[in-house]
Design a protein around this nucleic acid. Structure first.
Lengths: 212, 212
DNA sequence: GTCTATATAGGGATAGAC
DNA sequence: GTCTATCCCTATATAGAC
């Protein structure tokens, strides 16, 4: 039986990206890497095991299934984003929710690139996992933030251009994040302000909510 | 033997999105749909055949392999983008290449959403196809435009913010395109100007090439 | 041009030894 | 905790009938 990585315990949740002490974490790190590079569906347990240096069957000591590995990685994202929602709703002024959301997202994305990358690619796999079986173990598996964001994206009180701007701002963050190799030479201290500026230009535009 | 869809003949290349006269084209249409919705790797030939109403093996009369189907779809994109490169290089003034490129890309993307969607998702599958075998039949399989774009993206003479802006502008287009369902109620005549405005704000910024 | 039947490979997952 | 061996299933692809 696996050590005791309790159900709803989403990993010690370090901020950085370096992990890998326990075997369970080493598996997750390798899997994360492969899921990003080759995609969830295209990555076989055999590959993961090979990279780790032991056999396929050994994985099943640590995880019940392949989906279970994805789930564990997915929980890392939840650990990061869970704090956001209450914070947004706490503020009385709801007019700048989107700006405040983006603020958090950018910092979060840059500090946890890998997991966010996993989340951006492999959306289908994650969605299917949500629909799928193993929902009971880890609780109802809320993805409140996603829901909340989707709500803001299709806010019918916004003019079309406003909706485009919101969609676009997420696209900007995703694009820069996925183009990691292109910005390999750029340190975060330089990349982050540039990204913030551009995202600001996207939502700012002429002035939000002023479409003909 | 398949009708006579010669190697380098990339389909009659209609502008619209409605096709489906010959069986070969019907297969491609169904495959395109499934590859987008479920992903290339996750889509089986059995599914494609089922949707078409005949058996799996029949597909092999029209295409040599699954990759061959993807390749044929990929050629549709090439047919669209092939004209761009000469046009860009024709102009003497090279300072606004990126703006002109984006201009073309936006129109092209909106008028051929499906194929472009396929190209955005399934990048890995397409990349692997390029590396893979069947390269000889259709010629060296140039992807000049991709190469050219990548070159512009990492242009070392640009300040970091400029590179971020270029990457971001592509991200904006991709995001809006992939969010098709969110903009289902918006007609293109309304969506296109909004998209152009936002993309313009992204590249425009304070003024390209003026980063502290 | 489409079918059934089959070959072959690889996937996820389990059993039981060590 | 990791191994080997194996089961079962589905995938791509082929052979040959119609």
């Amino acid at each position: 039986m696996p050590p005791a990585a309790g159900p709803a315990a989403p990993e010690p949740a370090q901020s950085g990206e370096v992990r890998g002490s326990t075997t369970r974490e080493r598996i997750l790190d390798i899997a994360l890497d492969l899921f990003i590079r080759r995609g969830y569906a295209e990555t076989s347990l055999r590959e993961i095991a090979a990279e780790l240096g032991f056999s396929k069957a050994a994985l099943y000591y640590h995880f019940e299934s392949k989906q279970d590995i994805l789930l564990a990685l997915h929980m890392r994202v939840h650990g990061l984003t869970d704090g956001i929602l209450p914070m947004l709703q706490a503020e009385a002024d709801a007019s700048d929710v989107w700006e405040r959301l983006l603020d958090r997202l950018i910092g979060l994305a840059l500090q946890n690139r890998r997991v966010i990358e996993l989340h951006i690619r492999n959306q289908e796999a994650i969605a299917e996992m949500h629909r799928g079986a193993s929902l009971e173990k880890h609780g109802p598996l809320r993805h409140d933030v996603d829901q909340y964001v989707l709500g803001l994206l299709s806010d019918p009180s916004l003019p079309v251009e406003g909706r485009v701007r919101r969609t676009a701002s997420l696209g900007v963050i995703a694009a820069v994040l996925l183009a990691a190799s292109a910005f390999a030479d750029v340190p975060d201290v330089e990349l982050e302000p540039a990204l913030r500026t551009v995202v600001h230009d996207v939502i700012g535009g002429p002035a939000e909510g002023s479409a003909t």
